[in-house]
Nucleic acid binder design. Structure first.
Lengths: 242, 242
DNA sequence: CGGTCTGTTGAAATTGATCAATACCGGTGG
DNA sequence: CCACCGGTATTGATCAATTTCAACAGACCG
């Protein structure tokens, strides 16, 4: 029923329908989009045209910023099924988007996108929910950097990535592939690469996370989430506060 | 021409028109909104109804989260003229919004708001730009926490607040009133209150910032912004990258 | 004028960074 | 198949930044 071949459409649908009530027929409007798939190599910067958007079909992307003296900060990751808005990266070219490993992106015009949304109000709601999720992820990042210790930070990040990957069927029930180096992980959690290595060793000693090559194993995700006060994404679409 | 009395309408207009081309007549649609002004006391939590929005008319608000053990993280501040969406704060009630000092908020319904937007496409663009700014501010927060040193963090934050306040006419050319305690500042920049005190002393010694009661004086904003690589808001609406 | 909240200061303890050396791992080419 | 290579991870020692604890000094408020 769903066109296969790079399952970006399916992943996008899964994600959106998790965040907002959305039927297959509502989502069908997406097929009216004129899109173009592009392949990217490892660690390649993505320079979108002025008003361009993209959906990650395969691989990971991330947004980062370099400071004059070489310090780097990684703000967030975009996983398969995630929507990237290439437009608002403007200020002084400081913020950049790049691929982690080789990746496949599906590009389309922002104006086409908003036209499609106009034609299907349910999609507006769904994409708005998706943007809210992005905001929440960034807030999580702030929490990690501002008030969590080194081990808490990486555990919290792992839980978030695992949670997001599972949503689109890219993670097992207790593990996921982490395609980044410790250096990049360090620039994500605001530590040095050396300390990330030590922190990982600590987490392994405490049997909280295991590693197998580039696979992260969460021995007891539930209690770990409890420990670092990570909120699963599934809870987000619940009712609002009184 | 503009109704005075709590100038929230004016401040909102100033801010939006800075971010996006917006005429007074486009903005007039805002007057169709049914709103209600509410007064809040110092450090009072704001619990919006399920689908409620608000504009800050007076005072500061902030979003924060408490951890089990008492650690607190302040994510962002909303200044007069800023739009608060009370809806997406849901996950488990963990994220809260509160006032800093006494404040005046103008509340209205989210559905009214979106109807107003539907009637005036220019407003959609403007509010979208405002949301992008919010995202950028949060990214700045991530940068500060993740890769800036203690003095850089507070200087960067001061520049951002000063920049935002100036936009709505609430800051002088070299100073602004900071209505928060060092403890809250600490929870904003991810430090201890003690170290904030020492950091402020350092900044004073180096003649980078002065203080007069609760007023922060930026002795040379230009060079300070250069030093900590702060991007002024004014640059944001510039052209996108190629 | 007392009480409470906020800011300052000092000393000791902790956490994380830096530097530098070594080990590992996955390719690549002989 | 093996030796080598570049990039990545680990380890130890030392250094720097920040926290914590505790005491005290102001400031503000009623």
């Amino acid at each position: 029923m769903v066109k296969r071949l790079s399952g970006w459409r399916e992943k996008l649908y899964i994600k959106l329908s998790h965040l907002s009530p959305l039927s297959e027929s509502d989502f069908a409007a997406v097929d009216t989009l004129v899109w173009e798939s592009k392949s990217y190599s490892r660690q390649q910067d993505i320079w979108g045209a002025p008003a361009t958007m993209a959906v990650v079909a395969e691989g990971w992307c991330y947004r980062y910023r370099l400071l004059e003296d070489g310090r780097r900060m990684v703000f967030n990751y975009w996983l398969p099924g995630d929507l990237i808005n290439l437009a608002p990266l403007s200020p002084g070219l400081h913020f950049r988007t790049a691929t982690v490993g080789t990746a496949e992106l599906v590009h389309f015009s922002a104006t086409d996108f908003s036209e499609m949304c106009n034609a299907t109000p349910e999609l507006v709601t769904a994409f708005a929910a998706s943007e809210r999720l992005d905001g929440l992820l960034l807030a999580n990042q702030v929490l990690r950097l501002g008030r969590l210790s080194a081990p808490e930070r990486v555990a919290h990040l792992f839980l978030e990535l695992w949670d997001r990957l599972r949503l689109v069927g890219l993670a097992d029930s207790d593990r996921f592939a982490l395609p980044i180096t410790y250096g990049m992980l360090a620039d994500t959690v605001g530590l040095s690469n050396v300390h990330v290595s030590r922190t990982m060793a600590l987490l392994r000693e405490n049997r909280m996370v295991g590693t197998d090559r580039r696979t992260i194993i969460l021995n007891d995700p539930e209690s770990l989430a409890d420990l670092v006060e990570y909120d699963p994404i599934a809870k987000i679409d619940g009712e609002d506060a009184v």
